[in-house]
């Protein structure tokens, strides 16, 4: 059986030393091994950004797509071969700005893809502009007098959009991060995992210390019930979105694939695609 080391490759990440994304990389590698996958059974699809590079840093099939589009690529891949474990990933700009339309609809569609957002509340790759996750008043290169837009709450958004799995974690907490990714991978349906992953180079406000002081684990709430959507929403609001752990999970709702008429267990990519003459003749006869 593969261990997390088998999910390592020899490509050296080009992330700045100390970037939060390193821990996300390690957590994905551990989660894949813990769930029991071999490297070739996993595909990591990513968008564009510093975080988007992650698909190249894991020994698995990797597809580094275009800005904001990791989710439709990942969903297409999963429909093509449901035997693969498909992870989508990228930054908060990738998923909540340019790719927001896909995020909402991937949540609604509920195809079995695990989506990990590396949320640093800023644009890293383009060197420090505001993101939908930036706090009001946050000064960046593109908002020199402070952001005047409302900060997006991804957890509220996901719950409102009908998500079946919503989790949040922090990249220094490798144990929890690995556990929520593992749970997301085991979840039959779409899972959104928002990870606070500090940008040490361009975000001098939302630092490791800043997050450490504010995150609140679901473990700290007595009797927290992740299957209770009302409770989940309430705690998200109470913690000002800083809640971590599995925030909400609906294990009842079948995934998109499970509901498709005629969709089979064996990956579509492995099925025979040649029609028989008889099948063809029947199709043609409908036009007579």
């Amino acid at each position: 059986m593969a261990t997390f080391k088998d999910f390592r490759n020899n490509i050296k990440p080009n992330w700045c030393p100390g970037c939060g994304d390193f821990s996300v990389q390690a957590a994905i590698q551990r989660a894949c091994a813990n769930v029991g996958y071999e490297p070739e059974q996993v595909a990591v699809v990513s968008g564009i950004g510093c975080s988007g590079r992650i698909s190249g840093y894991i020994n698995a099939y990797g597809f580094h797509s275009i800005h904001g589009r990791s989710l439709p690529v990942a969903q297409g891949l999963k429909l093509a071969n449901r035997e693969l474990a498909v992870i989508a990933s990228g930054g908060d700009g990738d998923g909540f700005a340019i790719g927001m339309g896909h995020t909402v609809h991937a949540i609604r569609r509920n195809i079995d893809v695990t989506y990990i957002v590396m949320d640093n509340q800023i644009y890293g790759l383009t060197k420090g502009q505001t993101s939908p996750r930036s706090a009001s008043g946050f000064k960046t290169k593109s908002t020199p007098t402070g952001s005047i837009e409302t900060t997006l709450s991804p957890l509220e958004m996901a719950l409102a959009a009908g998500a079946t799995f919503v989790a949040q974690s922090f990249s220094t907490d490798l144990k929890q991060l690995t556990a929520v990714i593992e749970a997301g991978m085991n979840h039959k349906g779409f899972s959104l995992i928002n990870v606070f992953s500090p940008c040490v180079t361009f975000n001098k406000v939302n630092t490791y210390e800043w997050f450490k002081e504010r995150v609140v684990s679901t473990d700290s709430f007595d009797g927290y019930d992740a299957s209770n959507k009302m409770m989940a929403m309430q705690k998200v609001l109470e913690t000002d979105g800083m809640i971590t752990g599995i925030v909400y999970q609906n294990k009842e709702k079948p995934s998109y694939e499970q509901q498709l008429p005629g969709f089979q267990e064996i990956g579509l990519a492995k099925q025979n695609i040649t029609l028989t003459k008889d099948q063809f003749d029947k199709l043609v006869a409908e036009f007579n």
Binding site: V45, S65, R69, Q75, G76, L79, G267, A269
Partner: peptide, 29 residues
Amino acid sequence: PKLGGTVVQTEDEIAAVTMAIGANYGGVR
């Protein structure tokens, strides 16, 4: 659906084409 496949009505054409690219990468025409 009779042949194991399906049609997905996506949220826009960017999703439509990138989903098609993902599925082709996965091995399905």
